[in-house]
Amino acid sequence: MPDAFRCVVLIPSYNSGKLLRRTVSEVLAVWPDVVVVSDGSQDGSQHALDDLLLQHAGLHLVRLQRNGGKGRAVLYGAQWAEQSGFTHILTMDADGQHPAQDLPDFMAAGRQNPQAMILGKPVFGPEAPAVRVWGRKLSNGLVWLETGGAVQDCLFGFRIYPLKPFLQAMRMSRFMRGFDFDPEIAVRLVWMGLPARNKATPVRYLEKSEGGISHFHYGRDNARLIFMHVRLILTWVWKKLCGKRQLFPAEKHAQNCGSHGV
Rank of each mutant, 00 (worst) to 15 (best):
T87E: 00
V36K: 08
C154Y: 04
S38E: 01
M228R: 06
A109V: 13
T235I: 04
R21C: 06
V34N: 06
K18T: 14
S25T: 15
L19V: 12
Q246P: 00
V237R: 05
F5R: 09
C7G: 03
C154T: 07
W144D: 01
R174E: 07
R231C: 08
K137Y: 05
F227P: 00
C154E: 04
L145F: 06
R21A: 15
R72Y: 06
K70L: 06
M170S: 07
V8D: 01
G141Y: 02
T91M: 03
L225D: 03
F158Q: 02
H215L: 03
G96Q: 05
V35F: 02
V237L: 13
W236V: 03
F158H: 07
P195W: 06
L53W: 11
S45M: 04
A169F: 05
K18F: 09
L90F: 06
P195R: 14
H56D: 01
Q255F: 06
Q97L: 07
H260C: 08
R177K: 14
W134Y: 11
F227A: 10
P162L: 12
L20I: 13
G85C: 09
M176C: 13
E210L: 14
R111Q: 13
E210R: 14
D95Q: 03
K137V: 12
N67C: 15
R21S: 10
V123N: 12
G125M: 13
A4V: 14
L142F: 03
V190Y: 03
K164N: 01
W236N: 02
R22V: 11
M1H: 10
I11G: 01
A223G: 01
K208A: 14
G261P: 01
L189T: 08
W80R: 03
E184K: 15
E26Y: 08
G68T: 09
R174C: 04
G71V: 04
S139E: 00
V34T: 05
